[in-house]
Every structure is written in C-alpha cells, then in structure tokens.
Amino acid sequence: MRLRQYLVLKGNIPSGLYIGLGCLSFAVLMAVWCILTYGGVVPALFLPSPSEVAVQFYRMLTELNLVGDILASVYRVSAGFLLASLMGVPLGLLMGSFKLAEGLIEPLVGFVRYMPASAFIPLLILWIGIGDLEKIAVIFIGTFFQQVLMIRDVAKNISQELIDTSYTLGATQRAAFLKVVLPAALPGIVDTLRITLGWAWTYLVVAELVGASSGLGYMIMEAQRFLRTAGIIVGILVIGLLGLITDTLFKALYHRMFPWLERGTQ
C-alpha cells in the first residue's frame, strides 16, 4: 500500500515524487489547453492554441521588442521594490523593537494600507506624469505599507528570552539588536521580501495598464487593442515565468543563508 504510506498527515514523500507531482499539474493544465483549442471547443479569438502562442512569442521576440518591454518592467519593479524594502525593512524592525516607533507609525501605515495602490494612479499621474517614476511610485505604495507591517510582526515575534539571554552574557542593548534581533529576524525578512515581490509584480501590471508606452502591462494592453489574444497570453506567461524565476532564486537564497533552520545539518 504505497499510497497509504504517502497519505500520512504531514508525512514525507520522496523528492522525486514531489517534483513529479509538480510536473504532473503542469501537464494536466497543458492537456486541457490542447483539448480546448485543437479540439475546437473554444474559438481561437478567445483562446489561441499553444502553437499559436509560441509563434506569437517568437514574433514578439524578433519583431515587437518583447525584450525591451521585459527590461522596462523589470527595471520598474526592481526600483519600486528596492526602494520600498530599503525603507520598509528598517522601519518595520524599528516598530517591532520599540513601542515608541510603533505608536508613531502604526496608525498611519495601518490606515494607508487599506487604500488601494491603484487608486493613487490618477493622483500620481497628476503629480509626476506618466514616466517611469509614476510606475515606480505605484509599486512602492503597493508594497511598502504591507512590508512595514509584516516586518514589524517578524521583529515582534522574536523570543524575549533570547534577548534576555544575550543580556546575561554581557550584551548591551545595541549588541542585543545587532547580534540577536537581526539574525533572528533575517529568515522572516527574506520570506517577507519574497512574498511582497510577487505583489510588486501585480502592481506593476496595474500601473502599466494606464498611460504607459513600454513594459509588459502596456504590451498586454496593446495586444488586447488589436485583438491579438495570443499576445495577451504571452505577456501573462512571461510575467508568470519571471515570478517563478525570482521565487526560485529567493528560495535558493533562503536555504543557502539559513542552514541552521534545517534539522540534522552540520
């Protein structure tokens, strides 16, 4: 009874099987897509076939400057996300460590967080135009306020006992922050960055749907305007792929940085 053995609550399965299952889910999606399109269930205008999408992808790469759009988008996401992180991580740590900082910042951040970033777009266009800066600002607003609160929780959840231990070993408050709070918070910080980077991509597309002349979001809009459905799908797939790549990179980084989180490693 192999299956029985794999259906244990929180039980482990061989890594080969794990990877295989992941491939299976992709294969099923692909099969459904093929049946729907080649089987003529859905007209090509609504859902082009895989081969049509592949052809369109090649055309966009060679004729329509897809690479340029990708680069423009990657630049905006990176800039917005980096800016948000550079401010969000220290601020969040500060809020989680000092009630004074939390009292000052929390109400404001908590309030702004509920304002949809996309609703700022008209205002931002009015203020700073439709250039890169406006897109970066949208991404910043979309990620920063979430990040701050998530990082604050990470810092808050650090065990007081670990900090106390460092005090009894002679640490000053500064040393306790640098040698206990920071390393203890680091896995949570990396994880938060990984999750919020995904959100940054979402806001990018929203930002590029309005008043853009380059980028993946713009490209998708253009494709829709000319009823190039395959182009829309290429755009979505490319964004998905970029997300998958960064996510994988973050996960690899996580394992590299925190070997101590795994049991039994030396």
């Binding site: 065990s159 006992e161 106390d164 005090y167 206990v180 989180l261």
Partner: peptide, 20 residues
C-alpha cells in the same frame, strides 16, 4: 540591570539557533 557578572541558564531552551 543585567550584566555578564550574573550568568543565567533559562528554563526554556535559549541557544541562539543561527549559531553553532
């Protein structure tokens, strides 16, 4: 306040997990 002159072993496990 606390200081290195009074060492303490806590009731809970308090090794720093990120250090060997």
């Amino acid at each position: 306040g606390p200081g290195a002159d009074r060492g303490m072993v806590f009731q809970a496990y308090t090794l720093f997990p990120w250090l060997t």
